[in-house]
Design a binder for these strands. Structure first.
Lengths: 104, 104
DNA sequence: AGACTATACCTCGCTGTGCGAGGTATAGGA
DNA sequence: TCCTATACCTCGCACAGCGAGGTATAGTCT
């Protein structure tokens, strides 16, 4: 399947550590609304990524609320590279098919 | 989700009518292997699209074998337009996220 | 004749993703 | 007091995607 949520989460965390709610907001802004991860997608995804050893969780108290920051592990970084390459391929493949003008 | 199989099938059929096996081969070639629809994906997808009125089936006998050609209906054409636009948005959104150099 | 490959269709059943809906709790403004 | 924003969470459904397997014909090679 697409694996888009996993891909974009890893990509954001490759730049700097972020917490869940922040990731959701950032994705919405960056993609200009084209890619909105609901919390029912995001949080389970983060937990799965952590369990699989691609992220490390760093809980912190900020202004009376708990934030769980996530940081990419080396394995996570490798995984990101693979997923990004896959996406690139898929994206180009689909683009090529959408773009065929007339092809015997 | 992505809906990529549906999208590319509709796109191919928007050019000319094709039969299942041909669609599979064509996709493989056009996408340069990046997008291979297994028969377990393709045939059920074609049936679903026909049931939903997006395709019309045209069985023909060719050299002793049955081929089922599919042709896009007007509804199918409209559906394709919507899916293509969605894909464009998603693709650009993901691209923007993957491409962020440094953002703070 | 027998075996194998390519063409051409099909179904069944699993897996896992994606997702909405709902739930908890704190801080702060109206 | 109530509502909104922040910040986390889980449950359970729906459904796509996919492999594996099955049928049948035509042609080729041995």
């Amino acid at each position: 399947m697409s694996g888009v949520p996993e891909l974009v989460v890893l990509r954001l965390l490759a730049q700097r550590e972020m917490y869940g709610y922040e990731i959701a907001r950032t994705l919405k802004v960056l993609s200009q609304g084209a890619l909105t991860l609901g919390e029912g997608v995001l949080y389970p995804a983060l937990h799965a990524l952590e369990t699989r050893g691609l992220l490390r969780a760093l809980p912190r108290q900020v202004e009376g609320r708990t934030r769980i920051y996530y940081r990419l592990t080396p394995r996570g970084r490798r995984r990101l590279a693979r997923l990004a390459a896959n996406w690139q391929q898929l994206s180009e493949g689909v683009g090529r098919i959408l773009g065929v003008a007339d092809h015997d």
